[in-house]
Amino acid sequence: MSGKKLRVATTSLAGCFGCHMSLLDIDERLIDLLELVEFDASPLTDKKHPGPCDLALIEGGLCNAENVHVLRELRKQCKILVAVGACAITGGLPAQRNNLDVRDCLRSVYLSGPGLAGGGLIPNDPELPLPLAQVHPLHDVVKVDYFLPGCPPSADAIWQFLTDLLAGRTPALGHGLIHYD
C-alpha cells in the first residue's frame, strides 16, 4: 500500500449481522486495521449508498428485490467482491424456506399464529420490498471474487484474509481457519 487506504464497503443482506460481529471480533486489531482501510457504505457508518471502493464484504443471501438491488449496486462500485459466510455462499439458514410455499407461510404467520388480534392481515404496502420465491446465494446474481466460509467465519479467518489482501498476496486460509459451522 502506498499511503492510500483500501476503501471497504460492507453490507448485510438476508443475514443476521453475525459476520459483521465476527469482523468486530478482531478486537484491538480493529485499531491496526483502520490504519490501512477506510469504510465506505456500511452499517457501521452513516454513508447510505456505496461510492467507488476497492473491496465489498457482503454477508447474507438474497431474499428480496431490495437485496438484489443493493448487491448489484455494490458489484458496480467495487473491484473485489467477497461473499462472507454461509448465507452469502449458499443462502444459509434462511434458505430453509426454499421448499415451502410462500402463501402457506403467510397464512401461518399473519393469519393463524397464536395471539393475533382481530384475525390478523397480511402486510402489503409499496414500501415493503418484494420477497423472492426462494433465497439465493450471491453468485446466482453477480460475479463473486472470493468466498469466505463459516457461520460466521472466525475473526482470525477474516483477519488473515484482509491482511493477505492488503499485503498483495492471494488470500489463503491456513489450517484451522476454514470451517463451515
Binding site: L62, A65, S108, Y110, D125, L128, L130, L132
Partner: peptide, 19 residues
C-alpha cells in the same frame, strides 16, 4: 414471511433469468 406485491426477475451475471 411477507407477501409478494409486484413482479421481480432475478438474472445471473450473464443476464440469464434465474427466477
Amino acid at each position: 414471511l411477507g407477501q409478494m406485491p409486484l413482479v421481480v426477475e432475478l438474472q445471473d451475471p450473464s443476464g440469464q433469468v434465474v427466477a
